[in-house]
Every structure is written in C-alpha cells, then in structure tokens.
Nucleic acid binder design. Structure first.
Lengths: 196, 196
DNA sequence: TTGAAACCGGACACCTTGTCCGGTTGGGAA
DNA sequence: TTCCCAACCGGACAAGGTGTCCGGTTTCAA
C-alpha cells in the first residue's frame, strides 16, 4: 500500500457512457463542419448532455479534439522511436527527416479536421505532440552535424501547420503526394552532404 | 468630365477626426495587450466613439490592424521591386531570398503586435500581402531553376508566420539575428548550386 | 437495503457581436 | 450668410456563446 496516494476509483458507468457519447458526437461535428466553428454548446446538444457535464471533463473545444487525436499521434511517435527505418532508427538523418515529413503529411491528410481544431494558431506549440516532433527533428539535425539546430527546428516544423496544409490542398490544389515530394526535396537539400 | 463616375467627395471633418482617434487607440491597444484579446468594443471605448461608428469603417478587428500595417508592408514591397540589391533586383536568387528573409524578420520584430492581429492563423493567407510575398518567392525559385516552385512556395513562407516568430523569440529565446541567420542558412541550402 | 460520493443538467450572469434608427453635424448651394 | 440634405454618430437591441452554480438523481460499495 502507498499511504500518500489513494487508488483512483474506476469511472462510473454513467460517466463512461457520457464520455463515449461526447467523443462520438464531437468527431462527427469536426468532420462535417468547419472545425473552427464547433462550439461547446454544439457538442453538448449533439451528444445529448448538459453544458456543465461537458465542461466537467473538457475545458474547451480544443481539448476534445486533442482527446480524439491522441492515439493517432502516439502511434506515429511509437513508429519514430521503435519502428522500421527509414522512419525509425537506423537510417541516415536525411532519409529519416524525409520519411518523417511524409508520415506527417499522411497524418494531416487523414486527421486534418481534428488537427485544425486541436492545433491551430499558437495553440499548436502548447501541445505535447509539438514537443515530441521538435525533439525528434532536433536530434536528426544534431546527428547530421547541422550547425545551430535550435535555430532551425521550429522553421522546419512550420510547413506542417494544419492551416498551411489545408491551404496547399484546397487553394493551391496540390495533392498529398506533391506536398510530400516538396518536403522530401527540402529535407534532402538541408541535410544532404556537404553541410555548410 | 467622366460621366459614369462621380468624383469621390472628400471625407468630412468629423469622420476624419474619428478615423484618427480609432487608429491611434487601436495601435495602443495592440501594442500593450495580447493582440488576440482586443475586441471591437475595446477599441470603440478607447477611441471614445460608438460601436456602430467603428463598424461603419472596419468590419472586424483584423481590418483595423491591417490598416495600421499597410504602409509598412507597401514600403517593403517597393524595396523588393525597385530597391537596391540584394533585396531588390540584380542579385542572384539565393542572395535575394536570404535578404527577403532578413527583411521579413525585421518587419516581424518591429510590427509583430500588428501582424499577430492581422495575419494570425488561416487569415494570413487571405491578405493581399501574402499574395505578394508568395509571388516574389515563386519568381526567385523559378529564376534559380528550382523544380516545381509551386510545391515549395507556401513551405518557404511558413516560417514567417507571426505566431511562429513569437514562439522563437519568447519561448525558444532566439534573438532576431539568430532567427535571420537560420533562415539565411536555409535559403543558401535551398538555392545554392548544385540544384537537384 | 442504504447512504454518501459522484454525476447530471437546467438556469444564470456576463461578454461580444453586428445591426437598426432617431438625432446631430458638416459643408456646398443659393 | 443662410439653408438644407446627405453623411455621420452613437445608444439601444437581439442573438449567441462562455463558464459556473446548485439542487436533484444515479451509481456502487458496504
């Protein structure tokens, strides 16, 4: 027994049922509408629960989208840490960076409607996921011997902003493959020998 | 005389006075507070005018910040078109891109509080200024013989997002010079020979 | 079966937005 | 200089979202 820490009581059945309802309703709303226009009241009404019930669990709309997004981001993080090369360890930094870019494009393509709600604007930097991506890219830069990695990390992650991807896909008319090709080309220009 | 087009009547004195008051009050508010938290009501109260008077001229807070920003952006655009190299025409694309990056960092440093209000999130892409910057970079890429310039334009402008610069300066702790150095290094890696 | 803790949701007060309308002011025409 | 209409001004209004409070209800373990 640990005296100082009480064992967390399992979630009550009604609470679990409401959590499921809320997440399912929110997922639908994010997918079918402009993610930025979804309000807490919308989610509560669609889920069939009161506003206070919603606020009990999630302080704002962003946190709901983050909850829906978490497992997808964790899956990619696991592949970066323990997966097969070139995404995982073992390949040259330049190839790992290109693979990372393509994997992020895939994430943006599949879950853009969640990312645009969870990580738009400055909020993007405050999520745990951003910290992971930046640590990963920083390690690749350092591994390749790039001077001043910390000057470049945020710059290299900037093109993965959800709003930007949305623009490239819809306004500029690029395909996911074209966006990935552009980023992979960038990775090669930056990390391929000779370094300067 | 042009029959079809009436001469625009000069602005009335009271309207001009209110316009000046509004812009001055808004400038102060943007500078001293979080630019994202400034509301139309705040500006109206600070300027000493009614809300409807404010809405008559500016449909939202963004447009006020844009009005305050315009002449600064025009000045830089003029230097890009007609100024001395390497910012203006005449220098190799790689040097022009590096100079453009440093000039934008200077703009972000001096008027970040306006840019964060006028061009945050997806709104950034809808301004006329973004169209100018992207046309400029696209021309530099094409001039340097880079393959598929349209795949790279938005990517290369992404690091100039106001939110990102704010993060680099305050969270990461970089100096304006360090940010500019990073971007200039990037420009050289991308446009310096040999192209691939 | 029972009781307390956890949960639920309607209601409330506050804030912001965007528009409407009657009163006021400015400046050219007579 | 006086007149008069157009342009301008700003208080008021309705709608909608946010975050919180509190009394009633449900769950689950003893």
């Amino acid at each position: 027994m640990e005296p100082g820490r009480a064992a967390p009581r399992p979630e009550r059945a009604d609470a679990a049922r409401n959590r499921t309802r809320i997440l399912a309703a929110a997922e639908t709303l994010f997918r079918e509408r402009d993610p930025g226009s979804v309000t807490m009241e919308d989610v509560a009404r669609a889920a069939g629960v009161g506003r206070a019930t919603l606020y009990r669990r999630y302080p704002d709309v962003r946190s709901i989208a983050t909850a829906l997004l978490d497992r997808h981001e964790y899956a990619l993080q696991d592949r970066l840490l323990r997966g097969a090369p070139p995404l995982g360890p073992g390949a040259p930094p330049v190839d790992r960076l290109a693979a990372f870019y393509r994997a992020m494009v895939d994430l943006l393509e599949r879950f853009g409607y969640l990312l645009r709600s969870a990580e738009s604007g400055s909020a993007r930097f405050t999520t745990g996921a951003y910290g992971f991506w930046s640590a990963h890219v920083r390690a690749l830069l350092a591994d390749a011997g790039t001077p001043h990695p910390e000057q470049l990390v945020d710059t290299l992650l900037a093109p993965l902003a959800p709003e930007l991807y949305q623009r490239q896909r819809h306004d500029t008319g690029l395909t996911p493959e074209a966006v990935g090709d552009g980023l992979a080309w960038l990775a090669h220009r930056i990390l391929a020998e000779p370094q300067g």
